[in-house]
Lab assay of single mutants.
Amino acid sequence: DYEVGESVTVMDGPFATLPATISEVNAEQQKLKVLVSIFGRETPVELTFGQVSKI
């Protein structure tokens, strides 16, 4: 299970290999909103559970 505030690594898509912090969890739809730090700015990205891995 994923929790808000948890650190994960993006495994898929254009942000693969980047660390991210979970900002929202939708367990019903198996989706997460995460904040990816790009060029010093936090960018919100919506991903599925399968696109991230716990650190």
Rank of each mutant, 00 (worst) to 15 (best):
L47H: 00
V10S: 01
E6P: 00
T43W: 15
G50K: 12
P44A: 15
I55P: 10
T9I: 15
R41V: 15
A27R: 14
N26Y: 14
L32C: 04
M11P: 02
K31L: 14
T21A: 05
I55G: 11
A27I: 13
V34S: 00
G40H: 05
K33D: 03
V10D: 00
T17W: 12
S53R: 11
T43C: 10
E24P: 00
Q51E: 07
Q29V: 09
V36E: 01
Q51D: 06
R41C: 13
G50Q: 14
E24Q: 08
Y2Q: 01
M11E: 07
K31H: 07
L32G: 00
D12R: 08
I38Y: 12
V52C: 04
K31Y: 10
Q51S: 06
Y2W: 14
V36I: 13
T9G: 03
N26I: 10
P19L: 14
E24W: 13
D12M: 11
R41H: 13
T17F: 13
F49H: 03
V34H: 00
S23H: 10
L18C: 10
S7E: 13
T17V: 04
V34E: 00
M11T: 13
Q29F: 09
L35E: 05
G13S: 03
G13H: 03
G50A: 14
G50N: 13
K33I: 15
E28F: 10
L32Y: 05
V36L: 09
K54D: 03
S7T: 15
S53Q: 14
V25D: 01
Y2N: 02
V36F: 03
Q51N: 05
V8G: 01
V4W: 04
T48G: 11
V4Y: 04
L47C: 07
S37G: 07
V34T: 03
F39W: 10
V8S: 00
K54C: 04
Q30L: 09
T17K: 09
P19W: 11
E28Q: 11
E3T: 12
V4A: 06
P44K: 14
K31D: 02
A20P: 00
V4H: 04
V4I: 10
P14C: 09
I55A: 11
E42F: 11
E28Y: 09
E28S: 11
P44S: 15
D12L: 09
S23F: 15
V34K: 00
L32I: 08
T21N: 05
L35M: 12
E28I: 10
G13M: 02
G5A: 03
S53F: 07
S7I: 15
G5P: 01
L32H: 01
E6W: 07
T43I: 15
P19C: 12
T17D: 09
G50S: 13
P19E: 12
T43F: 15
L47A: 03
T21Y: 09
A20M: 03
S23P: 00
V4S: 04
T48L: 11
E24M: 09
E6L: 06
V25S: 03
S7N: 11
A27C: 11
V10F: 03
S53H: 10
T17E: 08
V52K: 00
I38F: 10
V52F: 02
S53M: 12
I55V: 11
L47Y: 05
D12W: 14
G5E: 02
V36H: 01
M11R: 09
E42Q: 08
V34N: 00
E24K: 06
A20E: 00
T48F: 11
F49C: 03
D12F: 14
V4R: 05
M11W: 05
K31Q: 09
F39M: 14
F39I: 07
G50H: 11
L35W: 11
L47N: 00
P19H: 13
E24I: 06
G40M: 05
G40L: 04
K33L: 15
I22T: 01
E42A: 06
P14V: 08
S37K: 13
K33W: 15
M11G: 04
A16G: 05
G13P: 03
